[in-house]
Design a protein around this nucleic acid. Structure first.
Lengths: 175, 175
DNA sequence: CACCAGAAATGAACAGCGTTCAATTAAAAT
DNA sequence: ATTTTAATTGAACGCTGTTCATTTCTGGTG
C-alpha cells in the first residue's frame, strides 16, 4: 500500500507478494474490505504511536508537537494515510467497532492536550473543540498531500494549521 | 456518479445509460481520467455557481453565506463532491491547466470575501489566509461527509467551521 | 441517382480485478 | 495406520479500463 497507493492496491497482488494464493487471503480476511480494514487499523495504530512518541519527547509546546506529529506521519506515509480516508465499506456502512475504537483513541490523544490547554473548560466543551481542531488540521494536511496547496502557492501548511489551532485555543481562553 | 459514487462508477455503465458503446465513450473522452475530469470539472463549476448565488442573495453576513454555501453543496451532492477529491490521475501527475483554473476560480470566490473582511491587508496576506480558511472549512466538511464527525458525536460541523473562520478573521484584524 | 471521402460508432479481445467454493493438501488426534 | 480437522489451492464468474480493426453513418460531388 505504501508503495502503490490505494488505487493500484489489490488483494491479488498482496497474495502474490506474500507467497499465498488469493483463496487463502480471502479465508483469512474474508473480503477486500476486511483486508483494507486490517491494513488501515495498523496505520491508525502506528499514527497514534507516533503522536504519543512526539508528545513524550516534547518540551513546553505540546500543541506544536501534536500538530507537527500529525503532519509528519502523513508526510512520511502519504499513501497509507490517504488510504485511511479514501477506503469506504462496500455497503457504505460504518466500520466495525474495533476499528472505530482506534480512531477514537487517536482523537483522545488530541483531546488530552486540548484539556491541558483549557483546564477550566467542561469535558464536553473540550471534546467539541478537539473535534473541530482535528478537522482544521486534517483539512490543512489533506490539502498538503493532495497537492491542492502547492497548486495554490502554499508552502507551509503545517505552520498555517498550527496558527489556526493557536487562535482557536486563545479564543477559547477569553471570557 | 451522484447515484453510485466513485467506487461503483464505471465508464462502461455510463456508456450503457447514455445509449452509446464503450468505444465511442473512449473516442470522446480518451480515457477514464478524461471522463472523470470532465465530470469533476462540471461539479466544480456548479459548486462555484452555487457559492456565487448564495453570496448574491446574502445579507450582511457574507462569510456565513460562504461557509454555509460550501457545506450545502457538499451535502446536496455528496458523492460528486467526494469524487472531486478522491479521483487521482492514473500517472499521479497534476490535472490539466483548464481544470486547475476551475479550482482557482472557486478559491477566488473565497478570497474576494476575505479581502472584503480585511480591507487593510496586503493581497498576498489575503491569499495565504484564504487558503488556510478554505482548508479549515474543507476539513470540517470532509469529516461531516465521511461520517467521522457523527462517529465522534459532532452534530453541527458547519457551525463549528464558521466559528473557526470567525476566530481567524478576528485575529487577523487585531494589531 | 450513384459514388465516395471523412467522421462517427462499434464490440470483440486482452489483462486485470474481487469473490466463491469444490477439491486438494497438510497437520493433528486417535 | 487411520481418521478427523485445519489449511490451502486455483479455476471459474462477472466485472473493470483499454485498444483498435471493422463497420456504419453522413454530407458532398459528379
Amino acid at each position: 500500500m505504501a508503495e502503490t497507493g490505494l488505487a493500484r492496491f489489490s488483494a491479488r497482488e498482496v497474495a502474490k507478494r506474500i507467497g499465498y494464493s488469493i483463496g487463502t487471503l480471502y479465508n483469512v480476511f474474508g473480503s477486500y474490505d476486511g483486508l483494507m480494514l486490517a491494513l488501515n487499523a495498523r496505520t491508525l495504530a502506528l499514527w497514534a504511536e507516533h503522536l504519543r512518541d512526539r508528545l513524550a519527547a516534547a518540551g513546553e509546546d505540546r500543541i506544536k508537537a501534536l500538530v507537527c506529529g500529525y503532519f509528519e506521519f502523513a508526510r512520511d506515509n502519504p499513501k497509507a494515510w490517504i488510504a485511511i480516508y479514501e477506503h469506504h465499506m462496500a455497503d457504505g456502512g460504518p466500520a466495525p467497532e474495533s476499528y472505530q475504537a482506534l480512531a477514537a483513541d487517536l482523537m483522545s490523544v488530541a483531546a488530552g492536550e486540548v484539556a491541558r490547554e483549557l483546564p477550566d473548560s467542561r469535558p464536553e466543551t473540550v471534546l467539541a473543540l478537539t473535534r473541530s481542531l482535528v478537522a482544521t488540521v486534517h483539512g490543512h494536511c489533506a490539502f498538503a498531500l493532495y497537492r491542492t496547496f502547492s497548486m495554490l502557492g502554499e508552502t507551509a501548511p503545517a505552520d498555517a494549521a498550527l496558527a489556526r489551532v493557536r487562535e482557536t485555543l486563545e479564543a477559547a481562553r477569553r471570557p
